[in-house]
């Protein structure tokens, strides 16, 4: 039963990711991305990573993808534009893809994976919080500074000059 659910989620994730690259309409791609994100959330749930799963939805589905769709809808006439060439340079692209698959596959087999406990961990968010605020405080702060810089830059760019 759990296995069936797992494979359904995998199917949704990969199928919709394929739709993202294959769809001729930009908006359809964006909407297919929604299902990819939700599928990835499902994979997180299978890893007992409940906090990460929910944050995935809040940040990617609730924030980033909405902004992408906004961008598409507010850009004049872009929604009706059909992408005529879905893919170019098929030969070289194929070689690159095969290379990436090879490297990734090799990595999957040589990495010593952590085995998960079969039962739900007592708490997840507290551990993440402790790690972020104590062990990885500097990278955390640097990342927030970077985001703040991007935010200020975006406001400056979008402001009308007078």
């Amino acid at each position: 039963m759990v296995d069936i659910v797992f494979w359904i989620i995998v199917g949704i994730t990969i199928g919709s990711a394929f739709m993202v690259v294959q769809s001729k309409s930009l908006l359809y791609s964006a909407y297919a991305l929604l299902f990819t994100f939700v599928g990835v959330t499902g994979l997180y749930v299978f890893l007992w990573a409940d906090f990460l799963a929910v944050v995935q939805i809040v940040v990617y589905v609730g924030g980033i993808l909405v902004l992408i769709i906004f961008g598409i809808m507010l850009t004049n006439k872009i929604t009706s534009v059909n992408i005529s060439h879905a893919s170019v340079q098929k030969g070289i692209g194929g070689v690159v893809v095969l290379g990436i698959i090879g490297v990734l596959g090799y990595m999957v087999f040589i990495t010593p994976w952590n085995q998960l406990a079969a039962t739900e961990p007592e708490q997840t968010s507290a551990t993440i919080g402790r790690l972020l605020m104590m062990d990885y405080l500097l990278p955390f702060e640097v990342a927030s500074l970077l985001l703040l810089g991007a935010l200020i830059a975006a406001t400056t760019l979008s402001r009308k000059e007078n």
Partner: peptide, 25 residues
């Protein structure tokens, strides 16, 4: 009884936005 109950609710409400945008478009 979800560990991250309150975030679960916030996450699901953010999915609801898509219904409205999709309907409108």
């Amino acid at each position: 009884d979800v560990n991250v109950g309150i975030l679960y609710i916030l996450a699901l409400t953010s999915i609801g936005v898509y219904g409205i945008v999709l309907a409108g478009w």
